[in-house]
Design a protein around this nucleic acid. Sequence first.
DNA 1: TATAATATAATCAGCACTGACTATTTGCTT
DNA 2: AAGCAAATAGTCAGTGCTGATTATATTATA
Lengths: 180, 180
Amino acid sequence: MIPLYILGLLQRYGPQHGYQIKKIVAEQLSDFTRIKLPTIYYHLEKMQKEGFLAVSSEKPGNRPEKTVYSITDKGMKAFQRMLTNMLEYDYRPTFPADSVFYFSEHLETSTIVKSLRAYIEKLKGIIRHIENHRGETIQHVPNEMQTMVEIIFSHHLLHYQAELEWADKSLKRLQIKEEE
Amino acid sequence: MIPLYILGLLQRYGPQHGYQIKKIVAEQLSDFTRIKLPTIYYHLEKMQKEGFLAVSSEKPGNRPEKTVYSITDKGMKAFQRMLTNMLEYDYRPTFPADSVFYFSEHLETSTIVKSLRAYIEKLKGIIRHIENHRGETIQHVPNEMQTMVEIIFSHHLLHYQAELEWADKSLKRLQIKEEE
DNA sequence: TATAATATAATCAGCACTGACTATTTGCTT
DNA sequence: AAGCAAATAGTCAGTGCTGATTATATTATA
């Protein structure tokens, strides 16, 4: 998925070096992915070896050279292939939090209840944050991308709301259990 | 998260070798995690080096020896620590499918529509499967674990339903766009 | 009863990822 | 002008994970 993003960004915004890609990702995708800088460099180098990218060292003034990558024809084909493969990607989440319930014999119910309460507040904060960010983003995005951006935001909002609903429901279940 | 499961299972079911752990996971947790066999062996060896596990080679008859692992006191403490840490675990999903929409300029809308339709059917199948499995599992589980098992199942169901809702909504948005 | 298929039990090489680090440049403060 | 923080640009060693493979035992099937 990371190579796909890198190839797509290089195609959309032209040749870039690693740090610039990181900045674009931070601006546009930070709510949806968490791609680390060393990971970007890793894939840039790898895809260069595979012939998906071409390098052209840039030496502005006497500053240290930056390695600028541009997408090749082969890279564009690889991008198209990866994107098409994504269409068949399965949603198969695992929730580390489940382990807390699976092994709940080893915790006080009151401890779980307390952490669920904190978790619920955190989720509400995240939902507020995404809703604000959605408003902002929609305005700054070109018209033809509006629908797509809305689809992505709604994807995350729906899942955060599902998570909130779950936490709420579970909290109530545990409180009933606690009273017994 | 995987070490946590391994330690917890060794505590609950007593000393086991790698393959047995894999079987327990397959029976009880296959809907919620996808832990691979070599990963289990990796953590068993690692945790043995850390002193969380003790080994005792078992040689039944003249068959090849099996390496049986049991949890140590130190391992139990580590388990408790890991479990407590889990209480603060954040939900921060990323959806590879988002890339399809982020780069939708490179695909025909009709292609996306078609794959969304297939995706929706697949999700409905998964939801049916989990609902059946929930019924079965609840019956075979000791009473004191009922609430917890229900919480875990509802976790997954809510998210699959959110995913379905999203796919449905997105499909409709794209169909409106297609008509324009 | 030979034999194919499946289950059991484990290893290992190689890939993806990233925390921690280095080094330079730019901007800000005093 | 000196000093410090933040931004820029990149490297590298170490960790976690798993596909592919090996090897034996058990079961099923012809």
